[in-house]
Design a protein around this nucleic acid. Structure first.
Lengths: 352, 352
DNA sequence: TAATTTATTGGAATCGATAACAGAAAATTA
DNA sequence: TAATTTTCTGTTATCGATTCCAATAAATTA
């Protein structure tokens, strides 16, 4: 009778509360609380007795009640652009690992590359009371970000280099990565290179800048590198087949494609094959990201490797530091270096 | 002065509370609460006035406080065996979509195929106060599950057919899928078929059963289908290269491999190639799962397609139904049908 | 008109913790 | 021994909502 736990609404059994522990130990709730937090001065005998009962009853303090009182939930939000994209799921793993290491939990939202869902997710997360969140965004609204910043809500951007005051991020150096890729193609003799990507997306915008500047540096005049908007569907997803057909039909003798990410690269290769051409014999393709399948497809993809796990891990760690140290207003901007991974999807051009 | 929000510890600004809304509207907190819940009888004029102020102040009730009072968090937990495995990330998407549709949030844990982390995750989630959770498990401890069940904590298993009373699941019919795969190989003339998989994992155990039974049905005597334990590392991950070398060295003239999942299949093909043999010319390989890369690798993989998104979506929906309807003790067991996807990794045998 | 019912509202307790403050006992110092 | 400090503990208010119960006013019925 004494040891039997009483029923409650939630599930079969009622969780034991601090009050009951206090009664069993013959002390006040305050004392139990003090034992729990470990910080304050409690008599050793009292402490031991309380700890013993806590252990015996397997008492765990209610995180909900703690949250209400302390205004902290030990929860962070993570808004992923697309959980099915291996790039993001690797990032997510880094985030989760870093969070759990500090005893935080992660609430996951999937914005599905949709800017409206993204906004909704941010709203949901703040209302739910996460202590802060991480945003892997594709096409963010400046106003939303500024608003968050002005409210003082702790957050960090992942893989989105947004240089406005008071906004922190962890990114890969997309500009540098694009330089690497472009230089590699140029050194192989390519001049007619098409950049495949939606320049509305922030990371792709940087890559495009690196691409353009490198061409300029090598004094290569490369006009018309844009994806006609009719091929861009909502959420930044492309009609790759259409683009490739369009490219080939233009008779411009494109010799290489710089795809903004590996997903696009893989799809492009498929589409090129479907149009009777071969990679890399007819067209070279370089990707960006180095996702897992890149090395496994028919023609292993030459691409730019980004430290993805680290991206997530560092972002989470930075955020947690902010959370643990509220007054700290220092800028936290981390830029990671990508590397060129040479495989088989690019070929030297001799007749140039 | 009046409209200025005061500062609080958490972030720059204090959230407005029900008390303040009540004061502004000149009613009691009780009345505001009633307006919020929409259910009780409130005078229309009062209701409108309160709603107006709620809107004006953009008041959102504190989910934490609600949780404490109502003992429900509108949060479910999801324990993924491996978020980087595309199978699970697709499942996760189904879960998230279903949860958000009913205004629930998902706390994500990644057990990393580690049974100990899995137990830790379950503990974390229950302590955190999720209303229930979903478990994609690899190698669960029966005792843990029975314990959860006995405590009355709501949960469902995903892709793990555990037939003990009071435990619910949504699974693919692994037995049937294995029958499909095995029959297909047999019809191609294969008799020496090796089943590649760790039979400790529940789903693989079912697949192995289907495999064995089908062979028996066709009166094919197939001995020695096991992966020597020395190739099985912690967490059920394999030394595929080692296994393949071992297989080839045995001189048993294996003509086909039935890989327990596509991951293993893809790795096997790589390993087979590394050993100077070709798929499907020398050895046929069939996979299981139909993950995205299966169609993109050098030799597109013949495999068994499972409805992954649906798996997650249905599991979440079932769980939420349980949560919304506590007293309902009916069994919820959903079995989805897989299909054979014929691509190019299996070949007919003529000399048998 | 008096009695009863109905509609609408508020007071106060509660959920399970934390924390400011004060008070009592023990230890130290004068 | 008295005064002061230190150590330890409890009382009470609070976080922001919900809910039981009672109270009031208005409407209905007798």
């Amino acid at each position: 009778m004494v040891s039997m736990l009483k029923k409650s609404k939630k599930n079969g059994f009622k969780k034991i509360t601090i009050k009951e522990i206090a009664e069993l130990a013959g002390v006040s709730r305050t004392t139990v609380s003090r034992v729990l937090s470990g910080s304050d001065f409690v008599n050793k005998n009292t402490r031991d007795r309380v700890l013993e009962i806590i252990e015996e009853k397997e008492y765990k303090p209610s995180i909900i009640a703690q949250s209400l009182r302390t205004n902290r939930t030990r929860t962070i939000g993570l808004v992923l652009a697309d959980i099915e994209n291996p790039f993001y799921s690797r990032v997510a793993k880094g985030v989760i690992d870093a969070a759990e290491a500090k005893n935080y939990n992660v609430i996951l939202c999937n914005s599905n590359n949709d800017i409206n869902l993204e906004e909704r997710d941010i709203r949901t997360l703040t209302e739910r009371g996460v202590d802060g969140f991480l945003l892997t965004t594709v096409e963010l609204k400046m106003k939303t970000i500024e608003n968050l910043r002005d409210k003082g809500f702790p957050f960090m951007l992942i893989d989105c280099k947004l240089d406005i005051p008071g906004v922190n991020y962890v990114v890969n150096d997309d500009y540098y990565g694009a330089e690497l890729a472009t230089e590699y193609l140029i050194n192989l003799g390519h001049k007619k290179i098409f950049f495949l990507g939606n320049r509305k997306l922030l990371s792709l915008r940087e890559r495009f800048r690196g691409f353009k500047d490198t061409l300029k540096r090598y004094e290569i005049n490369n006009t018309g590198n844009f994806v006609p908007t009719k091929f861009i569907k909502t959420g930044g997803i492309y009609d790759i087949e259409g683009i490739i057909r369009y490219l080939l039909s233009r008779q411009e003798n494109i010799t290489a494609i710089f795809a903004g990410n590996d997903y696009l690269a893989v799809k492009s290769i498929e589409a090129i094959n479907n149009n009777g051409l071969k990679v890399p014999e007819d067209i070279s393709v370089i990707g960006y990201d180095n996702i897992k399948i890149s090395s496994m497809i028919k023609v292993p993809l030459t691409t730019i490797r980004q430290p993805k796990y680290l991206l997530g891990k560092l972002a989470a760690e930075q955020l947690l530091e902010i959370l643990e140290n509220k007054s700290d207003r220092k800028a936290r901007r981390v830029i990671l270096r990508p590397e060129l991974v040479i495989r088989q999807s690019c070929k030297k051009i001799s007749n140039s």
